[in-house]
Design a protein around this nucleic acid. Sequence first.
DNA 1: AGGAATATTTACCAATCGGTACATTAATGT
DNA 2: ACATTAATGTACCGATTGGTAAATATTCCT
Lengths: 209, 209
Amino acid sequence: MSASAVTPAPTVGRPRAFDMEKALQKALEVFWRKGYEGASLPDLCEAMGINKPSLYAAFGNKEQLFLKTIELYENRPCAFFYPALEHATSYEVVKHMLCGAASTNADPDNPPGCVIVQGALACSESATFVKEALIAKRRAGEVALCTRLEQAKTEGDLPATSDPAALARYILAVLQGMAVQATSGANCAELKQVAETVLSAWPGKRPEL
Amino acid sequence: MSASAVTPAPTVGRPRAFDMEKALQKALEVFWRKGYEGASLPDLCEAMGINKPSLYAAFGNKEQLFLKTIELYENRPCAFFYPALEHATSYEVVKHMLCGAASTNADPDNPPGCVIVQGALACSESATFVKEALIAKRRAGEVALCTRLEQAKTEGDLPATSDPAALARYILAVLQGMAVQATSGANCAELKQVAETVLSAWPGKRPEL
DNA sequence: AGGAATATTTACCAATCGGTACATTAATGT
DNA sequence: ACATTAATGTACCGATTGGTAAATATTCCT
Protein backbone atom coordinates (compact mmCIF):
# COMPACT_ATOMS: atom_id res chain seq x y z
CA MET A 1 0.00 0.00 0.00
CA SER A 2 3.00 2.29 0.46
CA ALA A 3 3.95 4.49 -2.47
CA SER A 4 7.47 3.12 -2.73
CA ALA A 5 6.08 -0.40 -3.28
CA VAL A 6 4.51 0.56 -6.62
CA THR A 7 7.59 -0.94 -8.28
CA PRO A 8 8.04 -4.15 -6.25
CA ALA A 9 11.79 -4.50 -6.80
CA PRO A 10 12.17 -7.08 -9.60
CA THR A 11 14.19 -10.18 -8.75
CA VAL A 12 15.24 -10.80 -12.34
CA GLY A 13 17.01 -8.74 -14.96
CA ARG A 14 19.86 -6.28 -14.82
CA PRO A 15 19.86 -4.49 -11.47
CA ARG A 16 19.44 -0.71 -11.31
CA ALA A 17 22.83 0.97 -11.15
CA PHE A 18 21.71 4.00 -9.14
CA ASP A 19 19.96 4.69 -5.85
CA MET A 20 16.43 5.83 -6.63
CA GLU A 21 16.13 7.74 -3.36
CA LYS A 22 19.37 9.62 -3.91
CA ALA A 23 18.44 10.36 -7.52
CA LEU A 24 15.06 11.66 -6.37
CA GLN A 25 16.83 13.88 -3.85
CA LYS A 26 18.95 15.36 -6.62
CA ALA A 27 15.90 15.86 -8.83
CA LEU A 28 14.17 17.64 -5.96
CA GLU A 29 17.06 20.07 -5.70
CA VAL A 30 16.79 20.91 -9.39
CA PHE A 31 13.01 21.37 -9.34
CA TRP A 32 13.30 23.35 -6.12
CA ARG A 33 15.76 25.79 -7.63
CA LYS A 34 14.37 26.05 -11.16
CA GLY A 35 10.74 25.12 -10.86
CA TYR A 36 8.93 22.41 -12.82
CA GLU A 37 9.19 24.04 -16.23
CA GLY A 38 12.56 25.68 -15.67
CA ALA A 39 14.15 22.30 -14.94
CA SER A 40 15.09 20.60 -18.22
CA LEU A 41 15.62 16.89 -18.68
CA PRO A 42 19.36 17.36 -19.23
CA ASP A 43 19.44 19.39 -15.98
CA LEU A 44 17.71 16.58 -14.15
CA CYS A 45 19.74 13.79 -15.72
CA GLU A 46 23.03 15.50 -14.95
CA ALA A 47 22.09 16.09 -11.33
CA MET A 48 20.72 12.57 -10.93
CA GLY A 49 23.74 11.00 -12.62
CA ILE A 50 21.66 8.99 -15.08
CA ASN A 51 20.46 9.37 -18.67
CA LYS A 52 17.00 9.94 -19.98
CA PRO A 53 15.96 6.35 -20.70
CA SER A 54 16.89 5.38 -17.13
CA LEU A 55 14.93 8.32 -15.81
CA TYR A 56 11.86 7.38 -17.83
CA ALA A 57 12.13 3.70 -16.95
CA ALA A 58 12.40 4.48 -13.25
CA PHE A 59 10.02 7.41 -12.83
CA GLY A 60 7.68 7.49 -15.82
CA ASN A 61 8.06 10.99 -17.17
CA LYS A 62 8.94 14.50 -16.06
CA GLU A 63 5.54 15.13 -14.51
CA GLN A 64 5.53 11.92 -12.50
CA LEU A 65 9.12 12.53 -11.44
CA PHE A 66 8.12 15.95 -10.17
CA LEU A 67 5.19 14.59 -8.18
CA LYS A 68 7.52 11.98 -6.66
CA THR A 69 9.98 14.68 -5.64
CA ILE A 70 7.16 16.64 -3.99
CA GLU A 71 6.30 13.53 -2.01
CA LEU A 72 9.91 13.37 -0.89
CA TYR A 73 9.91 17.06 -0.08
CA GLU A 74 6.91 16.67 2.17
CA ASN A 75 8.54 13.78 3.99
CA ARG A 76 11.95 15.36 4.44
CA PRO A 77 12.68 19.08 4.24
CA CYS A 78 9.06 20.04 4.84
CA ALA A 79 8.38 17.36 7.43
CA PHE A 80 7.78 19.96 10.15
CA PHE A 81 4.38 21.05 8.93
CA TYR A 82 1.86 18.36 9.84
CA PRO A 83 3.58 17.26 13.07
CA ALA A 84 3.36 20.89 14.22
CA LEU A 85 -0.41 20.43 14.41
CA GLU A 86 0.05 18.03 17.32
CA HIS A 87 1.24 20.62 19.80
CA ALA A 88 -0.92 21.47 22.77
CA THR A 89 -1.75 25.08 21.99
CA SER A 90 -2.43 27.03 18.81
CA TYR A 91 0.49 29.28 19.74
CA GLU A 92 2.86 26.35 19.74
CA VAL A 93 1.35 24.95 16.56
CA VAL A 94 1.87 28.22 14.73
CA LYS A 95 5.27 28.76 16.29
CA HIS A 96 6.56 25.43 15.06
CA MET A 97 5.19 26.03 11.59
CA LEU A 98 6.72 29.47 11.29
CA CYS A 99 10.07 28.51 12.76
CA GLY A 100 10.20 25.30 10.75
CA ALA A 101 9.53 27.28 7.60
CA ALA A 102 12.20 29.82 8.50
CA SER A 103 14.76 27.05 8.93
CA THR A 104 13.77 25.11 5.82
CA ASN A 105 13.27 28.04 3.46
CA ALA A 106 16.65 29.56 4.29
CA ASP A 107 18.68 26.42 4.87
CA PRO A 108 22.05 27.02 3.19
CA ASP A 109 22.26 23.32 2.36
CA ASN A 110 19.14 23.50 0.22
CA PRO A 111 17.79 25.80 -2.48
CA PRO A 112 15.99 28.83 -1.04
CA GLY A 113 12.25 28.96 -0.60
CA CYS A 114 9.64 26.20 -0.87
CA VAL A 115 9.13 23.98 -3.89
CA ILE A 116 5.42 23.71 -3.17
CA VAL A 117 5.17 27.48 -3.51
CA GLN A 118 7.58 28.15 -6.34
CA GLY A 119 7.52 24.86 -8.22
CA ALA A 120 4.74 25.92 -10.57
CA LEU A 121 3.25 29.26 -9.54
CA ALA A 122 2.89 30.84 -12.98
CA CYS A 123 3.48 28.54 -15.91
CA SER A 124 2.33 27.50 -19.37
CA GLU A 125 -0.72 25.32 -20.01
CA SER A 126 1.43 22.21 -20.31
CA ALA A 127 2.14 22.46 -16.57
CA THR A 128 -1.47 22.92 -15.52
CA PHE A 129 -1.72 19.54 -13.86
CA VAL A 130 1.39 20.12 -11.77
CA LYS A 131 0.28 23.63 -10.90
CA GLU A 132 -3.08 22.36 -9.68
CA ALA A 133 -1.40 19.60 -7.71
CA LEU A 134 0.68 22.17 -5.84
CA ILE A 135 -2.37 24.36 -5.25
CA ALA A 136 -4.07 21.32 -3.73
CA LYS A 137 -1.06 20.70 -1.48
CA ARG A 138 -1.11 24.28 -0.25
CA ARG A 139 -4.85 24.17 0.31
CA ALA A 140 -4.57 20.91 2.19
CA GLY A 141 -2.15 22.50 4.60
CA GLU A 142 -4.48 25.43 5.10
CA VAL A 143 -7.45 23.16 5.72
CA ALA A 144 -5.49 21.08 8.22
CA LEU A 145 -4.43 24.18 10.14
CA CYS A 146 -7.96 25.55 10.04
CA THR A 147 -9.29 22.33 11.56
CA ARG A 148 -6.65 22.54 14.28
CA LEU A 149 -7.54 26.17 15.02
CA GLU A 150 -11.24 25.29 15.20
CA GLN A 151 -10.29 22.79 17.85
CA ALA A 152 -8.31 25.49 19.65
CA LYS A 153 -11.35 27.74 19.57
CA THR A 154 -13.54 25.00 21.01
CA GLU A 155 -11.00 24.42 23.76
CA GLY A 156 -10.92 28.11 24.68
CA ASP A 157 -7.34 28.40 23.51
CA LEU A 158 -8.44 30.91 20.87
CA PRO A 159 -11.06 33.54 21.73
CA ALA A 160 -14.67 32.84 20.81
CA THR A 161 -14.61 35.82 18.46
CA SER A 162 -11.75 34.45 16.38
CA ASP A 163 -12.17 33.16 12.83
CA PRO A 164 -10.13 29.96 12.41
CA ALA A 165 -10.45 29.96 8.61
CA ALA A 166 -9.19 33.54 8.38
CA LEU A 167 -6.36 32.85 10.82
CA ALA A 168 -5.31 29.74 8.93
CA ARG A 169 -5.33 31.64 5.65
CA TYR A 170 -3.28 34.38 7.29
CA ILE A 171 -0.67 31.96 8.59
CA LEU A 172 -0.42 30.20 5.26
CA ALA A 173 0.00 33.55 3.55
CA VAL A 174 2.86 34.37 5.91
CA LEU A 175 4.44 30.97 5.29
CA GLN A 176 4.18 31.43 1.54
CA GLY A 177 5.46 34.96 1.81
CA MET A 178 8.43 33.70 3.78
CA ALA A 179 9.20 31.35 0.90
CA VAL A 180 9.20 34.30 -1.50
CA GLN A 181 11.40 36.24 0.88
CA ALA A 182 13.84 33.35 1.00
CA THR A 183 14.11 33.20 -2.79
CA SER A 184 14.84 36.92 -2.64
CA GLY A 185 17.81 36.27 -0.39
CA ALA A 186 16.42 36.53 3.15
CA ASN A 187 18.37 34.43 5.64
CA CYS A 188 17.09 32.32 8.48
CA ALA A 189 17.46 35.04 11.12
CA GLU A 190 15.47 37.47 9.01
CA LEU A 191 12.71 34.94 8.49
CA LYS A 192 12.63 34.19 12.21
CA GLN A 193 12.00 37.88 12.81
CA VAL A 194 8.94 37.56 10.60
CA ALA A 195 7.87 34.53 12.59
CA GLU A 196 8.38 36.40 15.85
CA THR A 197 6.35 39.34 14.61
CA VAL A 198 3.44 37.02 13.91
CA LEU A 199 3.78 35.22 17.23
CA SER A 200 3.96 38.38 19.30
CA ALA A 201 0.45 39.23 18.14
CA TRP A 202 -1.05 35.76 18.11
CA PRO A 203 -4.50 35.78 19.75
CA GLY A 204 -4.17 32.32 21.32
CA LYS A 205 -3.01 31.45 24.83
CA ARG A 206 0.72 31.52 25.53
CA PRO A 207 2.38 28.43 27.01
CA GLU A 208 2.93 28.83 30.77
CA LEU A 209 6.46 29.90 31.60
CA MET B 1 13.50 61.77 -19.83
CA SER B 2 10.37 59.64 -19.60
CA ALA B 3 10.68 55.99 -20.49
CA SER B 4 8.14 56.15 -23.30
CA ALA B 5 10.27 58.77 -25.07
CA VAL B 6 13.09 56.28 -25.67
CA THR B 7 11.60 55.81 -29.14
CA PRO B 8 10.87 59.42 -30.13
CA ALA B 9 8.00 58.67 -32.52
CA PRO B 10 9.53 58.80 -36.02
CA THR B 11 8.03 61.35 -38.38
CA VAL B 12 8.98 59.42 -41.48
CA GLY B 13 8.36 55.88 -42.70
CA ARG B 14 5.39 53.57 -42.43
CA PRO B 15 3.46 54.26 -39.26
CA ARG B 16 3.04 51.57 -36.62
CA ALA B 17 -0.23 49.74 -37.12
CA PHE B 18 -0.84 48.89 -33.45
CA ASP B 19 -1.07 50.76 -30.17
CA MET B 20 2.11 50.08 -28.20
CA GLU B 21 0.43 50.77 -24.89
CA LYS B 22 -2.45 48.38 -25.61
CA ALA B 23 -0.04 45.74 -26.89
CA LEU B 24 2.05 46.11 -23.74
CA GLN B 25 -1.10 45.70 -21.68
CA LYS B 26 -1.86 42.42 -23.46
CA ALA B 27 1.72 41.25 -23.02
CA LEU B 28 1.46 42.02 -19.32
CA GLU B 29 -1.60 39.80 -19.04
CA VAL B 30 0.27 36.90 -20.62
CA PHE B 31 3.38 37.32 -18.46
CA TRP B 32 1.20 37.78 -15.39
CA ARG B 33 -0.64 34.54 -15.99
CA LYS B 34 2.21 32.36 -17.30
CA GLY B 35 5.35 33.97 -15.93
CA TYR B 36 8.34 35.10 -17.94
CA GLU B 37 9.47 31.69 -19.11
CA GLY B 38 6.01 30.17 -19.40
CA ALA B 39 4.95 32.86 -21.85
CA SER B 40 6.08 31.91 -25.36
CA LEU B 41 6.55 34.33 -28.21
CA PRO B 42 3.54 32.92 -30.09
CA ASP B 43 1.51 33.42 -26.88
CA LEU B 44 2.62 37.02 -26.68
CA CYS B 45 2.17 37.75 -30.37
CA GLU B 46 -1.32 36.31 -30.44
CA ALA B 47 -2.40 38.33 -27.41
CA MET B 48 -0.76 41.49 -28.71
CA GLY B 49 -2.18 41.03 -32.19
CA ILE B 50 1.17 41.40 -33.94
CA ASN B 51 3.86 39.08 -35.29
CA LYS B 52 7.33 38.48 -34.02
CA PRO B 53 9.29 40.95 -36.19
CA SER B 54 6.93 43.74 -35.11
CA LEU B 55 7.40 42.73 -31.51
CA TYR B 56 11.16 42.75 -31.83
CA ALA B 57 11.20 46.04 -33.74
CA ALA B 58 9.01 47.71 -31.15
CA PHE B 59 10.27 46.23 -27.89
CA GLY B 60 13.71 44.73 -28.50
CA ASN B 61 13.39 41.17 -27.33
CA LYS B 62 11.45 39.05 -24.88
CA GLU B 63 13.45 40.18 -21.88
CA GLN B 64 13.10 43.89 -22.66
CA LEU B 65 9.41 43.40 -23.39
CA PHE B 66 9.00 41.80 -19.99
CA LEU B 67 10.78 44.63 -18.21
CA LYS B 68 8.55 47.12 -20.06
CA THR B 69 5.44 45.25 -18.93
CA ILE B 70 6.67 45.34 -15.34
CA GLU B 71 7.03 49.09 -15.64
CA LEU B 72 3.43 49.25 -16.84
CA TYR B 73 2.35 46.96 -14.02
CA GLU B 74 3.89 49.23 -11.43
CA ASN B 75 2.17 52.26 -12.96
CA ARG B 76 -1.26 50.69 -13.34
CA PRO B 77 -2.51 47.62 -11.48
CA CYS B 78 0.11 47.96 -8.75
CA ALA B 79 -0.06 51.74 -8.53
CA PHE B 80 -1.36 51.61 -4.96
CA PHE B 81 1.94 50.66 -3.37
CA TYR B 82 4.17 53.73 -3.27
CA PRO B 83 1.34 56.26 -2.83
CA ALA B 84 0.27 54.29 0.25
CA LEU B 85 3.49 55.47 1.91
CA GLU B 86 2.13 59.02 1.95
CA HIS B 87 -0.57 58.39 4.49
CA ALA B 88 -0.33 60.02 7.89
CA THR B 89 0.06 56.97 10.08
CA SER B 90 1.81 53.62 9.71
CA TYR B 91 -1.55 51.97 10.28
CA GLU B 92 -3.03 53.72 7.27
CA VAL B 93 0.08 53.07 5.19
CA VAL B 94 -0.10 49.36 5.89
CA LYS B 95 -3.86 49.29 5.52
CA HIS B 96 -3.74 50.78 2.05
CA MET B 97 -0.99 48.40 0.99
CA LEU B 98 -2.80 45.34 2.23
CA CYS B 99 -6.20 46.35 0.89
CA GLY B 100 -4.74 47.47 -2.42
CA ALA B 101 -2.99 44.14 -2.75
CA ALA B 102 -6.20 42.28 -1.91
CA SER B 103 -8.07 44.15 -4.64
CA THR B 104 -5.34 43.85 -7.26
CA ASN B 105 -4.32 40.27 -6.60
CA ALA B 106 -7.89 39.00 -6.78
CA ASP B 107 -9.30 41.35 -9.39
CA PRO B 108 -11.50 39.20 -11.67
CA ASP B 109 -10.56 41.44 -14.61
CA ASN B 110 -6.89 40.54 -14.29
CA PRO B 111 -4.87 37.37 -13.83
CA PRO B 112 -4.61 36.32 -10.18
CA GLY B 113 -1.64 37.20 -8.02
CA CYS B 114 1.22 39.60 -8.63
CA VAL B 115 3.54 39.48 -11.62
CA ILE B 116 6.42 40.85 -9.55
CA VAL B 117 6.08 37.84 -7.27
CA GLN B 118 5.26 35.10 -9.74
CA GLY B 119 6.85 36.41 -12.93
CA ALA B 120 10.17 34.66 -12.33
CA LEU B 121 10.31 33.07 -8.90
CA ALA B 122 11.98 29.78 -9.83
CA CYS B 123 13.34 29.57 -13.34
CA SER B 124 16.21 28.41 -15.54
CA GLU B 125 19.53 30.22 -15.83
CA SER B 126 18.42 31.99 -18.99
CA ALA B 127 15.95 34.00 -16.90
CA THR B 128 18.44 34.98 -14.21
CA PHE B 129 18.49 38.64 -15.20
CA VAL B 130 14.71 38.92 -15.08
CA LYS B 131 14.59 37.03 -11.80
CA GLU B 132 17.10 39.40 -10.22
CA ALA B 133 15.22 42.39 -11.58
CA LEU B 134 12.05 41.22 -9.83
CA ILE B 135 13.95 40.53 -6.62
CA ALA B 136 15.25 44.10 -6.79
CA LYS B 137 11.70 45.42 -7.26
CA ARG B 138 10.47 43.49 -4.24
CA ARG B 139 13.42 44.65 -2.14
CA ALA B 140 12.88 48.24 -3.21
CA GLY B 141 9.32 48.08 -1.92
CA GLU B 142 10.53 46.62 1.36
CA VAL B 143 13.19 49.30 1.77
CA ALA B 144 10.69 52.06 1.03
CA LEU B 145 8.27 50.71 3.61
CA CYS B 146 11.08 50.28 6.12
CA THR B 147 12.07 53.91 5.68
CA ARG B 148 8.47 54.98 6.19
CA LEU B 149 8.19 52.88 9.35
CA GLU B 150 11.41 54.35 10.71
CA GLN B 151 9.80 57.74 10.30
CA ALA B 152 6.71 56.45 12.11
CA LYS B 153 8.93 55.26 14.95
CA THR B 154 10.61 58.66 15.17
CA GLU B 155 7.21 60.32 15.25
CA GLY B 156 6.01 58.12 18.09
CA ASP B 157 3.46 56.46 15.83
CA LEU B 158 5.21 53.14 16.32
CA PRO B 159 6.53 52.20 19.77
CA ALA B 160 10.19 52.83 20.51
CA THR B 161 10.72 49.09 20.94
CA SER B 162 9.56 48.27 17.42
CA ASP B 163 11.88 47.11 14.65
CA PRO B 164 10.94 48.86 11.38
CA ALA B 165 13.05 46.54 9.24
CA ALA B 166 11.41 43.46 10.73
CA LEU B 167 7.95 44.98 10.42
CA ALA B 168 8.55 45.93 6.78
CA ARG B 169 9.79 42.44 6.01
CA TYR B 170 6.75 41.00 7.74
CA ILE B 171 4.34 43.17 5.74
CA LEU B 172 6.09 42.36 2.48
CA ALA B 173 5.92 38.67 3.34
CA VAL B 174 2.18 39.00 3.90
CA LEU B 175 1.76 40.87 0.61
CA GLN B 176 3.73 38.23 -1.24
CA GLY B 177 1.82 35.48 0.51
CA MET B 178 -1.43 37.10 -0.52
CA ALA B 179 -0.24 36.92 -4.12
CA VAL B 180 0.38 33.19 -3.73
CA GLN B 181 -3.03 32.79 -2.13
CA ALA B 182 -4.63 34.59 -5.06
CA THR B 183 -2.97 32.28 -7.58
CA SER B 184 -4.37 29.42 -5.52
CA GLY B 185 -7.87 30.76 -6.01
CA ALA B 186 -8.46 33.05 -3.01
CA ASN B 187 -10.94 35.85 -3.76
CA CYS B 188 -10.82 39.46 -2.73
CA ALA B 189 -12.94 38.99 0.40
CA GLU B 190 -10.68 36.20 1.60
CA LEU B 191 -7.59 38.32 1.04
CA LYS B 192 -9.19 41.23 2.87
CA GLN B 193 -9.64 38.94 5.86
CA VAL B 194 -5.90 38.37 5.80
CA ALA B 195 -5.39 42.12 5.63
CA GLU B 196 -7.76 42.67 8.55
CA THR B 197 -5.97 40.03 10.62
CA VAL B 198 -2.71 41.90 10.15
CA LEU B 199 -4.27 45.29 10.87
CA SER B 200 -6.01 44.16 14.03
CA ALA B 201 -2.62 43.44 15.57
CA TRP B 202 -0.66 46.33 14.10
CA PRO B 203 1.49 48.01 16.77
CA GLY B 204 1.08 51.55 15.39
CA LYS B 205 -1.45 54.17 16.40
CA ARG B 206 -4.98 53.84 15.08
CA PRO B 207 -6.51 56.79 13.23
CA GLU B 208 -8.87 58.73 15.51
CA LEU B 209 -12.50 57.79 14.97
C1' DA C 1 6.66 61.32 -59.13
C1' DG C 2 10.38 59.40 -56.82
C1' DG C 3 13.57 58.33 -53.13
C1' DA C 4 14.20 57.52 -48.07
C1' DA C 5 12.67 55.54 -44.02
C1' DT C 6 10.03 52.52 -41.28
C1' DA C 7 6.53 48.64 -40.48
C1' DT C 8 4.59 44.29 -41.83
C1' DT C 9 4.46 39.62 -43.67
C1' DT C 10 6.37 35.26 -44.82
C1' DA C 11 9.56 32.11 -44.36
C1' DC C 12 13.23 30.52 -42.19
C1' DC C 13 17.27 29.61 -38.57
C1' DA C 14 19.95 26.87 -34.98
C1' DA C 15 19.13 25.27 -30.45
C1' DT C 16 16.53 23.09 -27.17
C1' DC C 17 12.35 20.87 -25.54
C1' DG C 18 10.23 16.28 -23.70
C1' DG C 19 10.30 11.69 -25.12
C1' DT C 20 11.72 7.11 -27.43
C1' DA C 21 13.70 3.03 -30.65
C1' DC C 22 17.20 0.10 -30.61
C1' DA C 23 21.10 -2.34 -29.65
C1' DT C 24 23.95 -3.73 -25.71
C1' DT C 25 24.99 -5.16 -21.07
C1' DA C 26 24.16 -7.55 -16.81
C1' DA C 27 21.66 -9.94 -13.80
C1' DT C 28 18.35 -14.43 -12.58
C1' DG C 29 15.93 -18.97 -13.43
C1' DT C 30 16.14 -23.37 -15.45
C1' DA D 1 24.88 -23.24 -21.04
C1' DC D 2 21.02 -20.71 -22.38
C1' DA D 3 16.67 -18.28 -22.41
C1' DT D 4 14.43 -14.52 -19.96
C1' DT D 5 14.13 -10.15 -17.99
C1' DA D 6 15.41 -5.61 -17.10
C1' DA D 7 18.68 -1.48 -17.15
C1' DT D 8 21.99 1.12 -19.78
C1' DG D 9 24.14 4.08 -23.56
C1' DT D 10 23.70 6.03 -28.07
C1' DA D 11 21.43 8.07 -31.27
C1' DC D 12 17.47 9.75 -32.78
C1' DC D 13 12.35 11.84 -33.14
C1' DG D 14 8.92 15.74 -34.11
C1' DA D 15 7.63 19.93 -31.88
C1' DT D 16 8.69 24.16 -29.98
C1' DT D 17 11.89 27.64 -28.32
C1' DG D 18 13.71 32.64 -29.02
C1' DG D 19 15.20 35.22 -32.82
C1' DT D 20 16.01 36.95 -37.84
C1' DA D 21 16.75 37.65 -43.25
C1' DA D 22 14.54 39.26 -46.93
C1' DA D 23 10.84 40.85 -49.53
C1' DT D 24 6.82 43.77 -49.52
C1' DA D 25 3.85 47.57 -48.05
C1' DT D 26 2.96 52.25 -46.39
C1' DT D 27 4.15 56.58 -45.04
C1' DC D 28 6.82 61.42 -45.33
C1' DC D 29 9.90 64.54 -47.72
C1' DT D 30 11.64 66.63 -51.68
